[in-house]
Design a protein around this nucleic acid. Structure first.
Lengths: 236, 236
DNA sequence: CTATATTTGTGCTGTAAAACATATTCTCTT
DNA sequence: AAGAGAATATGTTTTACAGCACAAATATAG
């Protein structure tokens, strides 16, 4: 049974990160072409191999970007929060003739503006500030990705999990209580973020709980001792 | 004792990848500001923490970009060949107030054009084609970096080493004989590329040699059975 | 041209984390 | 509300690979 629910999302004009960079002419083009889409939790937004036709701006919800690895193992490469742009890397890459090389899935109900690749390319070629903004975004993401290579290959499970928890805190922040992460992920997703098996994510997580570094209540994670998480992240 | 040796490098005008995108005015600015520098084998070009002041274009030699990981372990994140641009990510990133987060070292005698960050920023803000070119480069590198995360974390040593050998072949190609890699790296560098210990790189490399997949002669690697390398890279 | 350091090559040992096995609890669907 | 299928939890076994020790071969310097 489907029930009508009113979903509140910002208008494209309210997505300051992009709007403020545009000229009047650009804005008209964007409004004419931006298209809002809604996704439910666990719905796939795009898939490895799909031909990228749109850039997307997440305006509500949370999205995971992940790759399918060997033997069904998946690796989350990015986690998005509202106002994040995504799906644009594949548009630009010379190496994307085989389509996206990541999957995007809503980890909670989400809304997304879709902007055709052609519109983006038009805007980029006539708006240097926008182009520069893309360069900065890509540079940041590349820096993060390079850093991830080292963390995920060299750190031990405890350090990797601590890093994941701290990342989730930095990215999504806390709820009203000031200590519970404002994001709910399955143990499996936490494992994919931290490059470990689900068993190990569960085990290590409950280890942290026993040491009173965190408190777990279902999928809610409350940080009790952030200092200690820093230490584990650094020292192992 | 220093002996004068004439080093042959292309003029900045001959670096087509950038020159062709520039207007007459841009070209004047570039020539006025580009500065050629030479580095000997194993010389450090920039270092983690250094404040990035220049973008660089490698015009002769080979350079490794690497990160210092835990306990002295290093991780090579990119290997450059002539005409590669580097050092530009750190210029753009909003997260680089602590300087570069990678090191760059010449793995053989190399020459590099240095272009001040200010010059690059001026060019980017008035030349949309150049900006777009940067976007494409960054998008490609980001795609490669994301792929690397999965390869290095999920594949086994044999597969990782096979991937490294195939990468070196794609990146640097063969010598005149059509089968010897046109690049000489220490076992240590091969290990850093493949995320394994030096011992394991040596062991696995001589394993491949025993299986007649490759032939090793000091640091020279000759590919005997590329098909088999593909298979090992894919299947493990 | 020695002397010292670095790189390369092998074997052995220990261990972190994957793989597997099995409950138990949660959460969808009908 | 009941039953099926996920997701969570925890213990046991296995193994891939790091870590170490040491020898031989190269490279570098004095």
């Amino acid at each position: 049974m489907s029930r009508k629910i009113s979903i509140i999302v910002p208008k494209i004009e309210e997505v300051k990160e992009i709007w403020d960079l545009l000229t009047e002419e650009d804005r008209v083009l964007l409004i004419q072409n931006a298209n809002l889409k809604h996704y439910r939790r666990n719905e796939l937004i795009h898939c490895e191999g799909d031909i990228p036709t749109h850039m997307m701006i997440l305006v509500r919800g949370k999205v995971k970007i992940y790759k399918n690895g060997l033997g069904g193992r998946t690796q989350i490469v990015r986690m998005l929060k509202p106002n994040a742009w995504f799906g644009y890397r594949a548009i630009f890459s010379t190496k994307s003739y085989h389509g996206y090389n990541t999957n995007a899935m809503a980890t909670e109900d989400s809304s997304v503006y879709q902007i055709p690749a052609s519109t983006i390319n038009t805007l980029l070629h006539r708006n240097a500030s926008l182009a520069y903004n893309f360069i900065v975004r890509l540079a940041d993401e590349l820096g993060a990705s390079d850093a991830r290579v080292v963390s995920l290959t060299q750190k031990h499970v405890r350090a990797r999990l601590a890093e994941t928890i701290l990342f989730l805190k930095d990215n999504y922040g806390f709820r009203e209580d000031g200590s519970t992460l404002d994001v709910c992920l399955s143990r499996d997703d936490i494992a994919s973020l931290s490059n470990m098996t689900t068993s190990n994510a569960i085990r290590t997580l409950s280890g942290f709980a026993k040491e009173e570094i965190i408190k777990i209540e279902g999928r809610k994670i409350k940080i009790l001792d952030e200092e200690q998480l820093f230490r584990i992240n650094k020292m192992g």
